[in-house]
Design a binder for these strands. Sequence first.
DNA 1: ACATCAAATGTTATCGATATCTTGATACCG
DNA 2: CGGTATCAAGATATCGATAACATTTGATGT
Lengths: 334, 334
Amino acid sequence: MSKKGTRRHASGGPTMADLAQLAGVSKITVSRALGDSPLVNPETRERIQALAREHGYKLNISARNLRLRRSHTVAVIVEMKPSTDRTMFDPYPLVLLGGISQELTAAGYSVLLTTRQGASAAAVQAADGLILLGQGAHQDAVRRFDKLNLPMVVWGAQSGSDTHVVVGSDNRLGGAVVARHFIALGRHRPVFIGNPSHPEIFERLNGFIDALAVRGIKPLLMRRDEFTVDSGMDAVHSLHQRKVGFDAIFACNDLLAMGAIRATLDLGRSVPADVSVVGYDDMPLGASFLPPLSSVRQDWQEGGMLLARKVLALIEGEPASSESLPVSLIVRST
Amino acid sequence: MSKKGTRRHASGGPTMADLAQLAGVSKITVSRALGDSPLVNPETRERIQALAREHGYKLNISARNLRLRRSHTVAVIVEMKPSTDRTMFDPYPLVLLGGISQELTAAGYSVLLTTRQGASAAAVQAADGLILLGQGAHQDAVRRFDKLNLPMVVWGAQSGSDTHVVVGSDNRLGGAVVARHFIALGRHRPVFIGNPSHPEIFERLNGFIDALAVRGIKPLLMRRDEFTVDSGMDAVHSLHQRKVGFDAIFACNDLLAMGAIRATLDLGRSVPADVSVVGYDDMPLGASFLPPLSSVRQDWQEGGMLLARKVLALIEGEPASSESLPVSLIVRST
DNA sequence: ACATCAAATGTTATCGATATCTTGATACCG
DNA sequence: CGGTATCAAGATATCGATAACATTTGATGT
């Protein structure tokens, strides 16, 4: 079936040049017709578009990207720790991704997903913009990708010295809200469970401490590196062994909170009568926990959408500034 | 020759041509040097690579993609329903993605993440291969992307008529394993909770039914569309109201199972003494549930890696066949 | 000394789409 | 009727990297 004129290309379909020949016009006219440019006669346009459909023409994105110097692609760099085989402990990154994806797709962009390590770094530089996820978004990572000179936004906590755009929940506020909740309940021996070496957790802790300080209350920090139920239980058992008194627990994650509650109940104390507990992230499951868990809710989807909007703005050459998203305390039974 | 020599390009860095001029060689030599080709003199190579580093040279991926007709990119199409759907909020797709990402990255590929709807469909065709996620992977979606004529693999349940490569957990086996577990425990009035209109769930149900049939047992189907704790509770309450007897529950998801257990306990019956319950997916939280939940575990990460390996094989022109991953029953207290 | 060969580098064409600059044709105006 | 808008379409150059083919040079063998 192969004649010289109708050569099939290895990659498959016909090119604009092929269509041009079929239609008896030049390449550029085909380009215009397919782009609905007003520069072509409506009849010609129709004819060419029909021809394109008929022959299953597909635009070669790589060629267009090269010519336009734009890929309409945003790279999302996710920190996937090699250590834990469970990639990330929680569903949130996906929700974040969902928000990002939704917004970018709507704007005609697509998402290039990359992990921090390895070879795919090469592909990143074809992107029009960058979104850095993964808690902390460690400075070295930021600096590394900064060198690409692309519009970039980072999810996480703002640290004063940063020059790039950071979007994140207002973790300080999150801590403060919980503190005020405890104060309103008349608690005065609160405990914080979590790992403050993550910038975001650090902010929560600070907000917590500062808001408590207003009443002269100093929380006890139970540092725990794992964000698991077991870790939460362990923290409370440890408090008990050390005979430390406490009447409120702020766990920086719902799993920790559930563990803490379980351990507290095991020790024969009541939640919330004896001990108030508040978690963080408002996992769907928390509402079904017994007793239903109070928690601080972040709007991840909105976060993702905001991240996306910021990169898009930067890509368009518009200014964009760092921003914190409000959080809300969902009070249930604990 | 007027201004060309020193012109800075809009997109930023120098090109191979620029480097070539700086080094006093031709473009192709630069290309070879940067590609560590043995065709260039080691000294020359060093010199050029040093120059590249010094001037912050970045390869233009779009140009290379065009020339090579390969993007070293695999598109992953995720079904994200805009509504509050299960897919988006479960951790599993992310784990799957993690596996995919890990394997592809290792092979020098990157991941183009796309949702099924919308404009980003254009970008997909630049990919070297396709992975279709999202339960069901509905036939229309499959057919639509099949037209792109790209190597494609699908995550989900195999339906006999499919010609494309399907990778998924062995859901039939999952159902059968639970059935045999119930039989071993001497249960004879089992209930299935879930939504069998999803192909994967349908398979679980079939495996369950068939394996029970060996002992002449017929399970009761409680159809529930939502995969939530509430839905699980509701199912059991409904059973109770209708005065239907049961001594075993197979919930096609852990949240349903937890709900079912909660409701069962609420009704004054004991788990597992009176009623055995098995969930599905083995969520991390299930192990910390009270009582610790028995569940069927699928290896999502391995699934993702397998998907990736299959597309890569297809891309390389090698054959690949559909495959089911084994599942395992994790017996805990329920 | 001359042919042969291999190493190192260069020349040219190409991947496919599109911006810029022209050209040809028709209409419109005073 | 000459001159200028207006519209439709073409010619050419370009984006940046690389494959295929071509050339130069020095070394080796007989």
